[in-house]
Write a protein that binds this DNA or RNA. Structure first.
Lengths: 343, 343
DNA sequence: TTTTTTTGTTTAAACGATTAAGCATATATT
DNA sequence: AATATATGCTTAATCGTTTAAACAAAAAAA
């Protein structure tokens, strides 16, 4: 009736030796000084009883769990879902299990997750930090718990991190709109102070200035995370209703692009003829969109792998100097940023 | 330098009492017989030192981890990703953490995951079992480890499970094609012996027979999981090249639908005018498809919740009689199954 | 005052594994 | 034969927590 796993004790009793002997055979193999005959017997019984070591007990003894805590903004977002999968697979190669949770961009939720995972003794964290989570990261560092930030980072906190060059990528993708002759380029971004978002905005503004276009505050829509859909629609409506309506738009994330493209569809505006579009990120959803999108493709695979490797390094060697990895992203040019055919 | 968590011992030393006293105060609160003054002091020190209980140690002692092992076919599939999210959220309400992995429809991978999660002492499993995993499930049952199957189940194994009525759903969604006058209806299914897939096929065949249409073996494409994309394309090509080409098609899963719709696009066939379509499942991808799809909408929320509740019941009361939950799914009728306008 | 009960705290065992140290035997070295 | 070394196994401590049982001191009941 009782669910009782087979333990070293059970094997020891069955064979008639001490627990230690069994442990030596099963965990040390050849290196132990247990006789070959006894080893064989123990291994046989272990197999017969279907012994599985109790990892909880091993963890308690060793102080290590071979577990990584992964905190993402939102696991239902394909960008993070894919990143999670890459990290999971890569971590498996290092013999780590991943336990993760979504912060939903809320600092207090993120705090809960950090505490939860800490108490489960994860060996380290990979975190896509949300706004306001600086203190949590600092606390982990103070406790000497390894942390690697991913996708976003805090310039003032000396953590390991893996990011892409958001300024550069943003500059280059918006440049596509400029090149194809667009003059009134709008941008939709999330209204937060996270560095990566500010960098994307900086890239947008800089490329306009570099090309003699004016940066109009009304063309930069800042959307709250909580009510993204509605605010995106309103922002687009305003930009289109202006005296000088926008002729193209840059979406700073995939979720903004999805909200935005659906709205443009409702307004019966055709991409790229009525309005050109460029975006960050990709997703299966875009595969069915009638007009292939010019977008920034982030090197998810590389990012995930780098993060796991970086974390693994730090776990093994806590005194490694800070590792800051900045990858460059590819700009995929498609039809959605084309020149307007008839004007 | 050493990463050392604060333990009961540290608090005990600081306050000058035994470990047991600290434990009583922190875990029993009012129920303990520790004096109010001492309790207060201990709580203060615990707070000051930022004490977090070591869950690993608690688990070892209690033999329970408050953790659920979740094994899905493929976490990158939106159907499973959404199901996972529902389960995660529901489990959190019961104070359970979810650790999961994807079997990728491979029995040996699934076996690995079961062993892995077992050794981590999960309190129970929620599994969407793949073909050939019967023995794994039986073994868990024999060990009295709680298991709830989801999405799929084995009629011959008396487990708890949560599924939808696949036969009924399939019948009703294909019926839409029949009603709109389609006569040569193809189906794409995965080639496996799992009950849910067989039921979907049975629904398709039955509705044809019930309406005086012949069931042609050439119109039932059975696709292997490993090479789904290519085989889907070939199957569609064959069905279209036949003497009596199909006029409509039923995709048994969302992945098959995605492969299929992309291929129809390449062939320049318009839905529903050139070919009508119905499908199982949904996904953000379909939102951008030019023609809204008639499909079976599975009650993910209900399914996930039922699974967690069922598992929670069994964990608390292992001798509960078998709980078999079969939910009915909704058929969402859209344009893709409309009658062909011009023939 | 003596006995009983209550109150407040400690001791010790347990969960399952690891591992240094100990202790017999057996074998090798002088 | 005496000593050293190797072999094979056991003892016991440890990780951090929980909890029954023991114990001492204080309060209540006799």
């Amino acid at each position: 009736m009782k669910k009782k796993q087979v333990s070293l004790k059970d094997i020891a009793k069955e064979v008639g030796v001490s627990i230690a002997t069994v442990s030596y055979v099963l965990s040390k193999g050849k290196d132990s000084r247990v006789s070959e005959a006894m080893s064989k017997k123990i291994r046989e019984v272990a197999k017969r009883l279907n012994y599985q070591p109790n990892i909880i007990a091993q963890s308690l003894k060793s102080g290590t769990t071979n577990t990584i805590g992964l905190i993402l903004a939102d696991i239902s977002n394909p960008f993070f879902a894919n990143l999670a999968r890459v990290i999971e697979d890569e971590a498996a190669k290092f013999n780590y299990t991943v336990i993760f949770g979504s912060s939903d961009e809320k600092a207090d939720r993120s705090k809960q997750l950090v505490d939860f995972l800490s108490s489960r003794q994860v060996d380290g964290f990979i975190i896509a930090p949300c706004e306001g989570s600086e203190e949590q990261v600092r606390t982990l560092l103070q406790q000497n718990i390894p942390v690697v930030l991913i996708d976003r980072f805090f310039p003032k906190i000396p953590t390991d991190y893996v990011i892409i060059d958001n300024y550069e990528s943003s500059y280059r993708v918006v440049e596509q709109l400029v090149r194809s002759g667009h003059q009134r380029i709008g941008m939709l971004a999330y209204t937060n102070r996270l560095f990566h978002m500010q960098e994307r905005i900086r890239g947008y503004k800089t490329v306009l200035r570099d090309n003699g276009l004016t940066v109009e505050q009304e063309r930069l829509g800042e959307i709250s995370f909580a009510d993204g859909k509605k605010e995106t629609e309103e922002a687009i409506d305003i930009m289109l209703a202006a005296d000088q309506p926008i002729d193209s738009i840059f979406f700073a994330t995939n979720t903004l692009a999805i909200y935005g493209l659906k709205h443009l569809g409702k307004l019966n505006l055709k991409v790229p003829d009525d309005i050109a579009v460029v975006s960050f990120d990709e997703g299966e959803a875009f595969d069915f969109y009638y007009c292939p999108l010019t977008h920034v493709r982030q090197p998810l695979e590389e990012m995930g792998k780098a993060a796991v490797q970086s974390l693994s390094n730090r776990i093994k060697n806590p005194s490694t100097p800070q590792q800051a990895i900045c990858l460059s992203a590819e700009v995929v040019v498609r039809k959605s940023s084309s020149v307007t055919i008839a004007k």
